[in-house]
């Protein structure tokens, strides 16, 4: 299938320092898998008795809760920082999307590990509808501790689906000024969703749009526009 790997253009917007420490990028981690020639493998001694984050059981923090305030401050600072370094709203949304993408790849991995590690027959979603349902409930629950509020299918085009959140926790305290009305800070969420779909093998373009109603002023729609190849595959495997 000719679908360009989304990783590389995404990496280009990241600073080199964050690339160097990125355990995700194949470029930086390839040396870890090459065998040293004739030299004994040196396992670096643990520094002091500090517990390493990698030693921790992945299930330990499954139900742990984090402070919404702390994350609200962190996210506000991310938006503020990013906003100073972009030229327009589109650029800002794209960068938030990229940051979300990096979260999403990890969320997918951790989520599948947690959900499937214990079962005898681990599975992954291969049909789009099922994958969409699992993003709506499981990904949302893993990231925001609640399922999203609705799933919709576009009436106009076959390749567009929507996930709707009536009150996204990350934008709960954010008021977008009038002159930036088109901006949706949920682009981060869109990035997460895009990464999960990419990881599951459903390449798509995902964007976030504010669709306020009177009852839910911060209602947000995550719009998923599927790649043509996905539709063709769905069609052929019916």
């Amino acid at each position: 299938m000719q679908y360009s790997q989304p990783q590389n253009p995404r990496m280009s917007v990241l600073s080199t320092t964050s690339l160097a420490s990125d355990h995700f990028s194949p470029a930086s981690s390839s040396t870890r898998f090459s065998l040293p020639v004739g030299a004994p493998i040196n396992i670096p001694a643990k520094q002091g008795n500090k517990p390493q984050i990698y030693d921790r059981n992945l299930n330990k923090t499954r139900t742990a809760e984090v402070s919404l305030s702390a994350y609200a401050f962190l996210f506000a600072e991310i938006v503020r920082y990013t906003q100073m370094r972009v030229s327009g709203i589109g650029d800002l949304e794209r960068r938030l999307n990229v940051l979300g993408y990096r979260i999403g790849t990890r969320v997918l991995e951790l989520m599948s590990w947690r959900a499937e590690a214990g079962t005898k027959a681990p599975k992954r979603e291969i049909r789009f509808r099922a994958a969409l349902m699992s993003v709506h409930s499981q990904v949302w629950r893993a990231v925001f501790a609640k399922p999203a509020d609705a799933i919709e299918k576009s009436v106009d085009s076959d390749d567009e689906y929507m996930i709707i959140d009536n009150d996204p926790p990350i934008t709960r305290y954010i008021s977008v000024p009038k002159d930036m009305e088109q901006l949706s800070c949920s682009s981060l969420t869109a990035g997460i969703v895009e990464a999960v779909f990419d990881g599951l093998g459903f390449p798509a373009r995902v964007s976030a749009h504010s669709t306020p109603t009177d009852a839910y002023p911060s209602r947000t729609t995550i719009l998923i526009k599927l790649d043509k190849s996905v539709l063709e595959r769905e069609e052929s495997s019916k």
């Binding site: 305030s69 609200a72 401050f73 996210f75 506000a76 600072e77 991310i78 938006v79 503020r80 906003q83 305290y173 954010i174 008021s175 977008v176 000024p177 930036m180 800070c185 002023p217």
Partner: peptide, 20 residues
């Protein structure tokens, strides 16, 4: 909540936030 956690509010500047 609505002032300091809003990335579009600058500290010490007038508060123009709908949610506030």
């Amino acid at each position: 909540d609505a002032g300091m956690k809003n990335p579009f509010h600058a500290p010490e500047m007038p508060i123009r936030s709908e949610k506030f």
